[in-house]
Write a protein that binds this DNA or RNA. Structure first.
Lengths: 205, 205
DNA sequence: TAGATTGTTAATCGATTAACAATC
DNA sequence: TAGATTGTTAATCGATTAACAATC
């Protein structure tokens, strides 16, 4: 009866991993669910429960060996190796994503960037040359890319998603403020900064 | 016994509002919880329940007048007027945020942008001039800015947050991959694209 | 040993869904 | 009227927390 691990638990693992990396950078070698929880604003019970879905990683009386737990979480999340990622859209946002330094140490490498604007195609973003959208299929297939980020206007996001899926992409991080329709087996996550801001303005009274 | 409205409900309202705007753009005038739910991948019951926290907005047999519901949600979220927003960090990400067109129609206007790099201070991002971080306090106070976005390296995010809070900011959208410590009454939302990607790689097996 | 902390179970809490009377 | 859809209640489902035996 291997019950399914809740998606909400999976979603917290990257945050745990991130905090462990921070602790390691600070030179610490061992931590506890209590310390981790305090730093993250999460209860220690929740952290222990979340981790217990995957195995015993700690030691009673002591806590968790940071390096070891980091490695285990990386394995679970499959970021113990590097994933190539495609960026579609070479506007301000797409270029910022392509050059963002925060992916490299967390399991991702921006492998290619696409745009439909002839004025942008051929130009460089960092040391990546912008390719035309008509190249999406061959490029993504050639490099076995399974992850893409969409940074195009909402009006084009669905057709871009369709193309990506056809090319073999199975995980999409969508910055366009629109819900994408994708087949089963393809995962989508959304980032909508205006929605986050509106969430907070509710409380500004 | 006016029980508290759950935060998770507030978080969905911007998504409802966004979809209503899309429907309006498509020329539609009326919708139903069923249609909205289908488009958003949410149950119709949940939409009706969420809305019912705030009042009856629909009509039996007919559904919701889109314009009316839009207006009501804008009022509830307090985006029926425009909020000035500060951006801290004028790197790729900060500049992309400052120039992002998606805020204007959703209740936000980028009012100022700051950086600590003398090489960037004085330069223009769109038609905003980059100000030094030492100007944060006076500028934010002068314009009564209550909302800010942090787009600086993780190592500087906490001190930037402290300064912002001191200046009067009460809502922070933090792009640095780090949990911020802020006093009660200040809200923080986080955007961490690498965490979203790691959430999805779990399923890529 | 005494103190600390895990992993896990059971209890609690909260969120989602199903169902339906009301009514347009 | 008949059909459709809301708003709301109660039931279900799932997630979080409290508590503690095990043990380092």
């Amino acid at each position: 009866m291997s019950s399914e691990i809740p998606d909400i638990v999976i979603g917290r693992l990257p945050i745990y991993l991130r905090e462990l990396t921070l602790l390691a950078q600070e030179g610490q070698e061992v931590t506890s669910s209590h310390e981790l929880g305090k730093r993250l604003g999460i209860s220690s019970a929740q952290i222990r429960k979340d981790l217990s879905w995957f195995g015993p990683f700690g030691k009673q009386g002591t806590g968790y060996q940071i390096n070891y737990l980091q490695e285990q979480l990386k394995k679970i999340l499959q970021v113990d190796h590097e994933w190539p990622v495609a960026v579609v859209g070479a506007g301000d946002l797409g270029r910022a994503l392509a050059r963002y330094g925060g992916f490299a140490h967390r399991g991702f490498r921006i492998a290619c960037i696409f745009d439909n604007d002839p004025g942008k195609i051929g130009s460089y973003v960092g040391n990546l040359q912008v390719l035309g959208v008509e190249k999406i299929k061959e490029e993504i297939a050639a490099h076995h890319i399974q992850i893409a980020m969409i940074a195009v206007p909402a009006s084009h996001a669905q057709e871009v998603a369709d193309t990506l899926v056809e090319a073999g992409v199975r995980a999409i991080l969508n910055y366009a403020p629109i819900i994408l329709s994708v087949p089963d087996g393809v995962r989508v996550q959304y980032i909508d900064p205006a929605a986050h801001l509106q969430h907070m303005t509710y409380y500004l009274r």
